[in-house]
Design a protein around this nucleic acid. Structure first.
Lengths: 153, 153
DNA sequence: ATAAACCCTATAGCTACTCTAAGGTCAAGG
DNA sequence: CCTTGACCTTAGAGTAGCTATAGGGTTTAT
């Protein structure tokens, strides 16, 4: 039986994070000692390792919950597992493309400026005033409002 | 002079987001009409466009603040602009590599399972139990605790 | 007794927004 | 005049996946 500190040491995950995993429901509530301290088993350690490995593949906590639920029905068909992984591969694929396109646009912008002149003539600034990036799917962009009747200003 | 709704329509940024930009200090406080309504100028519109273009390159709000500050000293040298862009290119580059490596590892994992058998024999699940992704720099991973003296269990 | 190292809970912070609630303002229609 | 609807205002909570802080209890060594 491990204390949370021992589990942290063995797993490489900090106690705060383990408590967080418990709070959001991927780790389940461990037994408690008389003094209220959490008390973990070998099973908890491998569950935590599983979570970490999934997170290292950028799977969401919700996806991990699903995977863990599936692993608790070991006789069920693993098509659902494949679906989750395929979804994640697709997500990473889109993200990768988006980043590549952003990067090349930014590199292009960068080449237009030597860094020697004044900001007023900087081609980067001009570019940023005029151009959207070719692909803006990277981080949450504000949604455009549907054009309404518009009372005007 | 534009109302916030008109500015939203012209820029494609929703009123809530514009207020958010004001709150976090990239947009500055506009004038107000007698009734308290915000009142924007052409300058505000191009500032907002600039912010959007920067965000579409995934520049952070703080970076955008810096760029805007620089643009308000147009005679200053634009080396600082270049630095911000270079930093962003580097960030995107690392992110891109990280995603590629994650993806290929996940694809490899995926190929090990046909999706036909039971979860208990699923090679994906086995892989996730055993392996870290080769590169985990994508999303915030819990930091490992420095190994301490450890009171034990 | 006291310090150090561990444990507990609850709450706020991070990014870049989005959404909700509760209400004030303004123009048009009945 | 009153209502309807579109607009505007503020404040506060929610999103993901943690991290950090405050304020306190427990255990072990000195």
């Amino acid at each position: 039986m491990y204390s949370i500190g021992k589990l942290a040491e063995l797993s490489g995950v900090r106690p705060v994070t383990i408590r967080y995993y418990e709070k959001v429901g991927v780790m389940g509530s461990p037994e408690r000692r008389e003094n209220g301290y959490r008390c973990y088993s070998e099973g908890d350690l491998s569950r935590l390792a599983f979570i970490r490995h999934c997170r290292s593949h950028d799977l969401s906590i919700d996806d991990i919950k699903e995977l863990l639920a599936l692993s608790e029905a070991p006789e069920s068909n693993c098509g659902a597992v494949n679906e989750i992984i395929d979804k994640q591969i697709g997500r990473l694929d889109e993200l990768g493309k988006s980043i590549e396109s952003l990067k090349s646009h930014l590199v292009d912008l960068r080449h237009r400026c030597s860094g020697a002149g004044p900001v007023a003539q900087c081609e980067i600034m001009k570019g940023l005033l005029a151009e959207d990036a070719p692909n803006a799917a990277l981080c949450p962009m504000p949604k455009a409002k549907a054009p309404g009747k518009g009372k005007g200003g």
